[in-house]
Design a binder for these strands. Structure first.
Lengths: 203, 203
DNA sequence: ACGATATGGGCACCCGGTGTCACAATGGAA
DNA sequence: TTCCATTGTGACACCGGGTGCCCATATCGT
């Protein structure tokens, strides 16, 4: 086991040893360009590596898998979401807190909008990525479940918090898909709608 | 493209040509035995094929992928669920209908219980299968979304029916996991709980 | 200059999956 | 009975993602 992706975020900027020849961000750029022109499936890791001027083996030191490229710094962003939950008033209804945080989590600065869209397009439309995404969603759900458990006064492993986390993820995914399929619509509005309906029990 | 799995259910029992040397059911038996003893990941398709006395290539004529073995005749069972939806009274609240049908869909005759458990255990615990399952869930969701769209008087592609389908799947998955993690508990009861909470908006 | 340290990357290998193609088995027609 | 169309089988070669191994290559502190 060559462990997962080497940690590129916490390493000291200075120190002994050879300098890195590239960065995850740069690889991501190169990879996305190829995904755009050739499609995800037809873009091989070999292609990406060559285009970035590194070896195939080295690619896998930057990303644990070809799929992971698409997800970028997702895991780190979850801390933002966690912080968002901590900031909600304790007496706010559970699903309202979740809605507020999830909607806010998906706000992205206008400049990054197009990239965000292409990212989501890949994740939700390419079967290989749809499948792989499930594993990433687990982390997202864990954050929500933790919050829900806290609010409900139940263990994280209990049925209720898990059901809340799973369901909200579901609602969010529906909103994503709707946004992708309907150009011009607002992602945050769709998320808000879906999560509001969820809080109402779709009545 | 060698198309997906060859159809073993509708072919005429008689006709010209060589007879099949095995069956999906038999392969499933053999494969599950190996999964039990060696684990899913360490069981190679080569192993399964050898154990079943067929060639590796032939295995892929019976199942489109190693993952697919675990799912058995899932797609066919969806017709049962569709029928279940048709049988609900038209004035029943949406989520109550869904709850009734989903709970019923997961009732399995006692003799098959253990197999069902091992199947779900693989699907929900083995990362490779967790990932692959997403693609199968899509079919499940489509059935629910179709029903929800009908009841809501909206197109299937609309946000609401999709959110309903996604959310109910989420609740169901939470129930499955809870059931697996707590031996002795009742799957149907967990499903009922989770879906009831969902219908209430987790209030 | 030297050695500890960390990154780069070639190589061989595993495994899942697919296209090709020859061969085996079987039923029906001549 | 013989032959043929039909259908299943499986060897072979190949691709692509992913990994273990191991050495080359930089770079820093001494």
């Amino acid at each position: 086991m060559t462990g997962p992706t080497r940690d590129h975020t916490s390493g000291p900027t200075t120190g002994p040893g050879r300098r890195r020849t590239t960065s995850p961000a740069e690889l991501e750029r190169v990879a996305f360009a190829l995904f755009d022109s050739d499609g995800f499936d037809r873009t091989t890791v070999e292609h990406i590596a060559r285009a970035a001027g590194i070896g195939r083996r080295t690619f896998f030191r930057y990303f644990g898998s070809k799929n992971d490229v698409v997800w970028g710094a997702f895991t780190e962003r979850l801390d933002v979401m966690r912080a968002g939950f901590r900031a909600r008033p304790a007496d706010e209804p559970l699903l309202e807190s979740i809605r507020a945080v999830v909607v806010d989590f998906n706000r992205v600065d206008p400049g990054e909008g197009e990239r965000h869209r292409r990212r989501l397009e890949l994740i939700l439309r390419v079967p290989a990525l749809q499948a792989h995404s499930t594993l990433r969603y687990a982390d997202w759900r864990a954050v929500v479940a933790e919050f829900a458990a806290d609010r409900l006064g139940e263990p994280v492993t209990a049925l209720r918090p898990q059901a809340v986390a799973h369901s909200t993820l579901g609602a969010a995914l529906a909103a994503y898909e709707h946004w992708l399929s309907n150009p011009g619509t607002d992602l945050c509005a769709a998320l808000d709608d879906a999560l509001r309906d969820l809080g109402r029990g779709f009545g």
